[in-house]
Simulated scan of single mutants.
Amino acid sequence: MSAIAAFLLAQAVPAAAVPPAMPALEEATARIEANDAQLFWGFFEGCDPDAVAELLHPDFRMLHDLVGMPHDSAEDIVESSRRQCARRAPGGEAEGYKNRRLLVPGSRTISRLGDWGMLEEAHHTFHEWRGEEIGWVQTGGGRYLHIWQWIPAEERFRLLESLSLDHGPAPQYPPARD
């Protein structure tokens, strides 16, 4: 190699690493489903908001049909959940309170948003624990749309926005007869 070629090679700027592309639909769907399960477990039944904080985009915001914008950042929703979990802890004003969220089977759709994210839409139900005698009672339900942004540098999705809507009471059970 000539001295000039060696000099030019040494001065060459390394090619920028190409950020990883968003996964194909099947893999992206599996990741979103896993994130969804972890997210709702942490905020509801598991009451461990710190375990799900990493799933949230720093610019996260939540819009809710009944209350407007209850959370305008990841930090805000995690801190709010910490307070709620502290209320449920031994000695807290809501000691022993338990609730859960369940995905309505077959209701979820996940689709691509260009090459930058995924849209998840589904229905879910909400339940409260009423003690050993009664067990879990459905208290309501709703629908949600989540926008998951692909973060190439982290090679994962983070929840950017949550739209929670169509909230309503639990349907009567058994159903009323006409």
Rank of each mutant, 00 (worst) to 15 (best):
F7M: 13
L113T: 06
L113N: 02
A37I: 09
E33D: 07
E26A: 11
H57R: 03
E155S: 12
R87N: 10
F40I: 15
L63T: 12
F44Y: 08
A86S: 09
L119N: 03
E33A: 12
R83Y: 09
E154Q: 14
V18I: 03
L160H: 04
Q172V: 15
G106F: 01
P14L: 02
E154G: 06
L56S: 03
R177Y: 15
A15L: 06
E75N: 13
M118T: 02
A122E: 05
R158N: 01
D115C: 05
P152K: 01
W150Q: 00
H124V: 04
S2L: 11
A15V: 07
T29S: 12
S80R: 11
L103P: 00
R101V: 10
E132K: 09
A24E: 12
P152S: 08
A89D: 12
A170D: 08
E79A: 12
S2C: 04
S2G: 14
S107N: 06
E54S: 13
F126Y: 08
L113M: 12
D59G: 05
E155T: 14
G68F: 10
L8V: 15
A6T: 15
T139H: 03
P58N: 03
Y144I: 07
L103W: 01
A122H: 10
I77L: 03
A153M: 00
S2Y: 12
R177Q: 14
E155N: 13
P70T: 05
T29I: 01
E133T: 14
E133A: 14
F126L: 13
W41L: 08
E133C: 04
N35M: 02
L25P: 00
E26H: 09
P19I: 09
E154V: 05
G142H: 06
A10I: 14
G46D: 09
Q84R: 13
Y97E: 13
T109R: 09
R61I: 10
A17M: 04
R112Q: 06
L102K: 13
P20G: 05
H57P: 02
E154N: 09
R82P: 00
W41K: 09
P20Y: 01
D48P: 00
E93S: 11
G140S: 01
H64N: 15
A10D: 04
P19Y: 08
G96R: 05
A24K: 10
V18Y: 00
R31Y: 00
S107P: 06
Y144S: 07
G92Y: 02
G91N: 06
